[in-house]
Protein backbone atom coordinates (compact mmCIF):
# COMPACT_ATOMS: atom_id res chain seq x y z
CA UNK A 1 0.00 0.00 0.00
CA UNK A 2 1.20 3.48 -0.77
CA UNK A 3 1.78 6.04 1.93
CA UNK A 4 -0.20 9.24 2.11
CA UNK A 5 2.73 11.14 0.66
CA UNK A 6 1.75 9.80 -2.71
CA UNK A 7 -1.55 11.60 -2.57
CA UNK A 8 -1.31 14.67 -4.73
CA UNK A 9 -2.37 17.41 -2.31
CA UNK A 10 0.70 17.10 -0.14
CA UNK A 11 3.16 18.60 -2.58
CA UNK A 12 1.01 21.38 -3.90
CA UNK A 13 -0.63 24.53 -2.66
CA UNK A 14 -4.07 24.04 -1.31
CA UNK A 15 -6.58 26.28 -3.00
CA UNK A 16 -5.33 25.58 -6.49
CA UNK A 17 -8.05 24.44 -8.88
CA UNK A 18 -7.70 20.74 -9.61
CA UNK A 19 -10.73 20.62 -11.86
CA UNK A 20 -11.88 23.59 -13.92
CA UNK A 21 -14.98 23.58 -16.08
CA UNK A 22 -15.42 26.52 -18.44
CA UNK A 23 -18.47 27.46 -20.48
CA UNK A 24 -19.59 23.85 -20.70
CA UNK A 25 -22.59 23.25 -22.93
CA UNK A 26 -24.48 20.11 -23.82
CA UNK A 27 -27.74 19.85 -25.70
CA UNK A 28 -29.92 16.86 -26.51
CA UNK A 29 -32.01 17.81 -29.51
CA UNK A 30 -33.83 20.96 -28.47
CA UNK A 31 -33.15 20.52 -24.77
CA UNK A 32 -30.23 22.41 -23.29
CA UNK A 33 -29.07 20.20 -20.44
CA UNK A 34 -25.94 22.14 -19.55
CA UNK A 35 -25.88 25.79 -20.53
CA UNK A 36 -22.60 27.63 -20.31
CA UNK A 37 -21.65 26.23 -16.92
CA UNK A 38 -18.34 27.29 -15.39
CA UNK A 39 -16.92 26.32 -12.02
CA UNK A 40 -13.79 24.98 -10.45
CA UNK A 41 -12.97 22.55 -7.68
CA UNK A 42 -10.03 23.23 -5.40
CA UNK A 43 -7.53 20.56 -4.62
CA UNK A 44 -8.12 18.73 -1.37
CA UNK A 45 -11.65 19.94 -0.81
CA UNK A 46 -15.03 18.32 -0.58
CA UNK A 47 -17.18 20.35 -2.92
CA UNK A 48 -20.91 19.91 -3.19
CA UNK A 49 -22.83 20.24 -6.44
CA UNK A 50 -26.52 20.87 -5.83
CA UNK A 51 -29.52 21.93 -7.79
CA UNK A 52 -33.11 20.94 -8.44
CA UNK A 53 -33.89 17.88 -10.53
CA UNK A 54 -33.03 18.54 -14.14
CA UNK A 55 -30.50 21.22 -13.28
CA UNK A 56 -27.88 19.39 -15.34
CA UNK A 57 -25.73 17.96 -12.56
CA UNK A 58 -25.46 14.41 -13.86
CA UNK A 59 -25.01 15.59 -17.44
CA UNK A 60 -22.19 17.81 -16.22
CA UNK A 61 -20.60 14.73 -14.62
CA UNK A 62 -21.04 12.83 -17.86
CA UNK A 63 -19.38 15.64 -19.82
CA UNK A 64 -16.48 15.89 -17.38
CA UNK A 65 -15.81 12.14 -17.39
CA UNK A 66 -16.14 11.66 -21.13
CA UNK A 67 -19.39 9.70 -21.20
CA UNK A 68 -20.75 12.58 -23.31
CA UNK A 69 -18.71 14.92 -25.47
CA UNK A 70 -19.71 18.50 -24.63
CA UNK A 71 -20.97 20.67 -27.49
CA UNK A 72 -18.86 23.56 -26.28
CA UNK A 73 -16.58 24.52 -23.42
CA UNK A 74 -13.53 22.98 -21.85
CA UNK A 75 -12.75 20.70 -18.95
CA UNK A 76 -9.31 21.03 -17.43
CA UNK A 77 -8.03 18.51 -14.91
CA UNK A 78 -4.72 18.82 -13.10
CA UNK A 79 -3.50 21.44 -15.57
CA UNK A 80 -4.39 19.43 -18.66
CA UNK A 81 -7.35 19.82 -20.95
CA UNK A 82 -9.37 16.62 -21.03
CA UNK A 83 -12.42 17.81 -22.98
CA UNK A 84 -13.89 15.05 -25.11
CA UNK A 85 -11.38 12.40 -24.13
CA UNK A 86 -12.62 8.85 -23.66
CA UNK A 87 -13.74 7.73 -20.18
CA UNK A 88 -10.82 5.33 -19.73
CA UNK A 89 -8.32 8.02 -20.75
CA UNK A 90 -9.80 10.40 -18.18
CA UNK A 91 -9.88 7.72 -15.49
CA UNK A 92 -6.22 6.99 -16.28
CA UNK A 93 -5.46 10.65 -15.47
CA UNK A 94 -6.86 10.13 -11.98
CA UNK A 95 -10.39 11.48 -12.30
CA UNK A 96 -12.84 8.73 -11.42
CA UNK A 97 -16.57 8.81 -10.90
CA UNK A 98 -19.38 6.83 -9.38
CA UNK A 99 -22.91 6.74 -10.73
CA UNK A 100 -26.24 8.03 -9.50
CA UNK A 101 -27.66 4.52 -9.75
CA UNK A 102 -24.86 2.24 -8.61
CA UNK A 103 -23.32 0.35 -11.51
CA UNK A 104 -21.83 -2.64 -9.85
CA UNK A 105 -20.95 -5.72 -11.92
CA UNK A 106 -23.85 -7.86 -10.69
CA UNK A 107 -22.67 -11.32 -11.77
CA UNK A 108 -19.19 -10.83 -10.40
CA UNK A 109 -18.35 -11.25 -6.73
CA UNK A 110 -17.69 -8.20 -4.58
CA UNK A 111 -14.03 -9.16 -4.51
CA UNK A 112 -13.89 -9.45 -8.31
CA UNK A 113 -15.57 -6.06 -8.59
CA UNK A 114 -12.85 -4.52 -6.47
CA UNK A 115 -10.06 -6.48 -8.19
CA UNK A 116 -11.10 -5.24 -11.61
CA UNK A 117 -10.37 -1.62 -10.80
CA UNK A 118 -6.62 -1.21 -10.15
CA UNK A 119 -4.68 0.41 -12.96
CA UNK A 120 -1.74 -1.03 -14.87
CA UNK A 121 -2.54 -4.67 -14.26
CA UNK A 122 -0.01 -6.77 -16.16
CA UNK A 123 -2.53 -9.53 -16.68
CA UNK A 124 -4.82 -7.25 -18.65
CA UNK A 125 -2.69 -8.03 -21.66
CA UNK A 126 -3.99 -11.08 -23.48
CA UNK A 127 -0.68 -12.80 -24.15
CA UNK A 128 0.59 -12.33 -20.60
CA UNK A 129 -2.50 -13.98 -19.20
CA UNK A 130 -1.86 -17.06 -21.35
CA UNK A 131 1.92 -17.34 -21.90
CA UNK A 132 3.42 -19.75 -19.36
CA UNK A 133 6.39 -17.73 -18.10
CA UNK A 134 4.95 -14.25 -18.41
CA UNK A 135 1.99 -15.40 -16.35
CA UNK A 136 4.17 -15.76 -13.26
CA UNK A 137 4.51 -11.99 -13.01
CA UNK A 138 0.77 -11.71 -13.41
CA UNK A 139 0.19 -14.11 -10.54
CA UNK A 140 2.67 -12.23 -8.34
CA UNK A 141 0.96 -8.93 -9.00
CA UNK A 142 -2.39 -10.58 -8.53
CA UNK A 143 -1.41 -11.67 -5.03
CA UNK A 144 -0.63 -8.05 -4.12
CA UNK A 145 -3.91 -6.92 -5.65
CA UNK A 146 -5.88 -9.48 -3.69
CA UNK A 147 -4.30 -8.28 -0.45
CA UNK A 148 -5.01 -4.68 -1.35
CA UNK A 149 -8.59 -5.57 -2.28
CA UNK A 150 -9.21 -7.21 1.07
CA UNK A 151 -7.82 -4.16 2.85
CA UNK A 152 -10.13 -1.88 0.91
CA UNK A 153 -13.12 -4.11 1.64
CA UNK A 154 -12.22 -4.02 5.32
CA UNK A 155 -11.87 -0.24 5.19
CA UNK A 156 -15.42 -0.03 3.89
CA UNK A 157 -16.54 -2.80 6.23
CA UNK A 158 -17.97 -4.93 3.46
CA UNK A 159 -15.32 -7.65 3.69
CA UNK A 160 -17.90 -10.11 5.01
CA UNK A 161 -19.61 -9.83 1.61
CA UNK A 162 -16.45 -10.45 -0.41
CA UNK A 163 -17.66 -13.67 -2.00
CA UNK A 164 -21.24 -12.62 -2.61
CA UNK A 165 -22.36 -11.60 -6.06
CA UNK A 166 -22.49 -7.84 -6.21
CA UNK A 167 -26.02 -8.05 -7.59
CA UNK A 168 -27.26 -9.43 -4.27
CA UNK A 169 -26.08 -6.44 -2.24
CA UNK A 170 -28.43 -3.83 -0.82
CA UNK A 171 -28.58 -0.39 -2.40
CA UNK A 172 -26.41 1.14 0.29
CA UNK A 173 -23.85 -1.66 0.13
CA UNK A 174 -23.62 -1.16 -3.62
CA UNK A 175 -22.84 2.49 -3.07
CA UNK A 176 -20.04 1.49 -0.70
CA UNK A 177 -18.78 -1.06 -3.21
CA UNK A 178 -18.77 1.50 -5.98
CA UNK A 179 -16.75 3.91 -3.88
CA UNK A 180 -14.38 1.12 -2.83
CA UNK A 181 -13.96 0.13 -6.46
CA UNK A 182 -13.34 3.70 -7.58
CA UNK A 183 -10.67 4.10 -4.91
CA UNK A 184 -8.84 1.01 -6.16
CA UNK A 185 -7.93 2.93 -9.30
CA UNK A 186 -5.81 5.25 -7.12
CA UNK A 187 -7.49 8.42 -8.36
CA UNK A 188 -6.63 11.92 -7.27
CA UNK A 189 -10.19 13.13 -7.53
CA UNK A 190 -13.55 11.43 -7.15
CA UNK A 191 -16.85 12.55 -8.61
CA UNK A 192 -19.63 11.03 -6.55
CA UNK A 193 -23.12 11.17 -8.03
CA UNK A 194 -25.60 11.02 -5.14
CA UNK A 195 -23.52 8.68 -3.00
CA UNK A 196 -26.07 8.81 -0.17
CA UNK A 197 -29.16 7.99 -2.21
CA UNK A 198 -30.80 4.88 -0.82
CA UNK A 199 -28.27 4.60 1.98
CA UNK A 200 -29.65 4.17 5.50
CA UNK A 201 -28.62 6.72 8.15
CA UNK A 202 -26.03 4.57 9.91
CA UNK A 203 -24.43 3.56 6.64
CA UNK A 204 -24.55 7.19 5.50
CA UNK A 205 -22.65 8.22 8.59
CA UNK A 206 -20.07 5.55 7.83
CA UNK A 207 -19.76 6.64 4.23
CA UNK A 208 -19.26 10.28 5.25
CA UNK A 209 -16.58 9.24 7.72
CA UNK A 210 -14.84 7.40 4.93
CA UNK A 211 -15.03 10.44 2.69
CA UNK A 212 -13.47 12.61 5.39
CA UNK A 213 -10.75 10.02 6.04
CA UNK A 214 -9.94 10.05 2.37
CA UNK A 215 -9.97 13.83 2.22
CA UNK A 216 -7.33 13.87 4.94
CA UNK A 217 -5.23 11.64 2.76
CA UNK A 218 -5.35 14.23 0.01
CA UNK A 219 -8.28 13.19 -2.12
CA UNK A 220 -10.50 15.79 -3.75
CA UNK A 221 -14.25 15.24 -3.94
CA UNK A 222 -17.03 16.67 -6.02
CA UNK A 223 -20.33 15.37 -4.69
CA UNK A 224 -23.79 15.66 -6.17
CA UNK A 225 -26.26 15.33 -3.32
CA UNK A 226 -29.85 16.16 -2.57
CA UNK A 227 -29.57 15.92 1.21
CA UNK A 228 -29.00 19.51 2.31
CA UNK A 229 -27.70 18.48 5.74
CA UNK A 230 -24.94 16.49 4.12
CA UNK A 231 -24.02 19.35 1.82
CA UNK A 232 -24.13 22.04 4.50
CA UNK A 233 -22.28 20.05 7.15
CA UNK A 234 -19.68 18.24 5.12
CA UNK A 235 -18.72 20.37 2.15
CA UNK A 236 -16.32 23.27 2.22
CA UNK A 237 -17.67 24.75 -0.95
CA UNK A 238 -20.98 24.44 -2.73
CA UNK A 239 -21.81 24.95 -6.39
CA UNK A 240 -25.46 25.51 -7.20
CA UNK A 241 -26.75 24.65 -10.66
CA UNK A 242 -30.08 25.73 -12.02
CA UNK A 243 -31.44 25.14 -15.51
CA UNK A 244 -28.06 24.06 -16.78
CA UNK A 245 -26.08 27.02 -15.52
CA UNK A 246 -24.15 27.74 -12.38
CA UNK A 247 -26.32 29.94 -10.22
CA UNK A 248 -23.99 30.45 -7.28
CA UNK A 249 -20.72 29.21 -5.90
CA UNK A 250 -19.37 29.68 -2.39
CA UNK A 251 -19.23 28.47 1.18
CA UNK A 252 -22.27 26.62 2.52
CA UNK A 253 -23.20 29.42 4.94
CA UNK A 254 -23.16 31.99 2.16
CA UNK A 255 -25.10 29.71 -0.19
CA UNK A 256 -27.76 29.26 2.48
CA UNK A 257 -28.26 33.02 2.57
CA UNK A 258 -28.13 33.57 -1.18
CA UNK A 259 -31.50 34.95 -2.32
CA UNK A 260 -31.28 33.45 -5.81
CA UNK A 261 -30.53 30.01 -4.43
CA UNK A 262 -33.35 30.18 -1.96
CA UNK A 263 -35.69 31.20 -4.68
CA UNK A 264 -34.56 28.57 -7.18
CA UNK A 265 -33.98 25.66 -4.96
CA UNK A 266 -34.40 26.01 -1.23
CA UNK A 267 -37.45 28.21 -1.43
CA UNK A 268 -39.92 25.43 -0.90
CA UNK A 269 -38.23 24.23 2.24
CA UNK A 270 -37.85 27.44 4.26
Amino acid sequence: MSETSEAPAEQRDAGEALLAVENLRKTFGGIVAVDDASFSVERGTITGLIGPNGAGKSTTFDCITGVYTPDAGTVTFDGEEITGRSPPAIADRGLVRTFQIAREFPEMTVLENVLLAPKDQLGESLWRSVAPIARREVVEQEEELVEQAWETLEFFEIDHLAREYAGTLSGGQRKLLELARALQTEPSMLLLDEPMAGVNPSLEKKLLERVHDLQERGYTFLIVEHDMDVIMNHCERVIVMHQGSVLAEGEPAAIKEDERVIEAYLGGEN
Binding site: P88, D92, V96, R97, E104, F105, P106, L116
Partner: peptide
Protein backbone atom coordinates in the same frame (compact mmCIF):
# COMPACT_ATOMS: atom_id res chain seq x y z
CA UNK B 1 -16.53 -9.92 -17.49
CA UNK B 2 -16.67 -6.22 -16.69
CA UNK B 3 -17.56 -5.52 -20.32
CA UNK B 4 -20.29 -8.13 -20.15
CA UNK B 5 -21.71 -6.83 -16.90
CA UNK B 6 -21.55 -3.07 -17.47
CA UNK B 7 -19.25 -1.63 -20.08
CA UNK B 8 -19.87 1.99 -19.08
CA UNK B 9 -18.80 1.23 -15.54
CA UNK B 10 -15.71 -0.63 -16.73
CA UNK B 11 -14.73 2.30 -18.92
CA UNK B 12 -15.26 4.78 -16.12
CA UNK B 13 -12.80 2.73 -14.06
CA UNK B 14 -10.16 3.28 -16.72
CA UNK B 15 -10.52 0.00 -18.60
CA UNK B 16 -9.82 0.31 -22.30
Amino acid sequence: KGIREDEVAARSLGKH
